[in-house]
Amino acid sequence: MPRTKEQFEQMRKATKNKIHTAAMQLFVRKGFGSTTVQEIADLAGISIGLLYRHYKTKEQLFSELIQFSLTGLQKVSDLFQTDDSPKKLFDQFVSEVHNDLEQGEDLENLLILMKQAFFSGGAHVEQERLGQINDRLLRSTAQLIQKGQELGEFRNGDPHEMAIYFFSVIQGLAEMKAVMKDSFIMPSQPLLTAFLYKDEENKIGEEQGRALS
């Protein structure tokens, strides 16, 4: 029986996911310049011809990965500008980040890849757009923190400095996980927001007490 259009689309998406995963791993491990198309195809478990059906060049593949990352940042920025409780929004985001860093490598690789993209200086990197979206994310995060402070949920402090600190921690954890590999231990979720929430110290104390008992 011939395959349906839906089946072909599922196969196409599955192949692209394999390519994305393999490319991210190699770009992070070896760098963009040192990674070959053949290595990407081999790690993805496909022929180099099939890879070229999806991407004409390595630069095109790299650019699509960066665009995927930028879309993710844009969604976070949009989420932080909704009308939900600041603490609820932050909890939702931190929970997703914590799970992704603890259980997989995709977020870790994407964060490192974006850093490489910003500093590579290559023509295939939209550095200006990356900087603009990053600035927008910091502003929306600072505004959310300020709103939480006004509601009495968040600690006092400069909202922009707190936003920079938070994302620096996330970036640092991603890079430490890449370096430490199996010896990396993901900090608890309450620890990631202890600097931000007024009631987080009590939660951390309770968790530490349970761990020691």
Rank of each mutant, 00 (worst) to 15 (best):
S95Y: 10
A178D: 07
Y52P: 07
M114D: 04
F195A: 09
K58F: 05
Q208R: 06
L70Y: 00
M176A: 13
N202T: 12
G49D: 07
K181I: 08
Q132I: 07
Q143A: 11
Q7C: 06
N156S: 13
A178Q: 14
Q103D: 12
T57Y: 00
G121Y: 05
Q7W: 06
T35Y: 02
G121P: 02
M1A: 15
R29V: 08
A178S: 13
P159C: 01
S85Q: 09
V97T: 01
K16L: 06
M186S: 08
V76Q: 04
R210C: 03
I66G: 08
K177N: 04
M180N: 13
K5D: 13
S77V: 03
I145P: 00
A194V: 12
F8S: 12
F90C: 08
T57G: 01
S95P: 02
H98Y: 11
Q81D: 05
F8I: 06
Q7K: 11
L144S: 04
T193Q: 06
N109Q: 12
L191F: 05
Q10G: 04
Q74E: 11
Q127T: 11
I145G: 00
F154P: 01
T36N: 02
L70T: 00
A14P: 09
S120N: 07
A178Y: 09
M1I: 13
A117W: 01
L61V: 10
K30A: 10
Q60G: 12
S85G: 11
Q74I: 03
K181M: 13
G33E: 15
S34K: 14
M11P: 03
E128C: 00
R210I: 13
S63H: 15
G72C: 07
H124N: 13
V28I: 14
F62T: 02
S183Y: 11
M180C: 11
K75P: 01
T15W: 05
N109V: 05
Y52S: 12
R155S: 07
A22C: 03
G157I: 01
Q103Y: 15
K30R: 15
F80Q: 10
A14D: 14
L196D: 00
Q38I: 12
K177V: 03
T35G: 02
K203E: 14
R155W: 04
F184A: 09
Q146S: 14
G209A: 06
A174S: 10
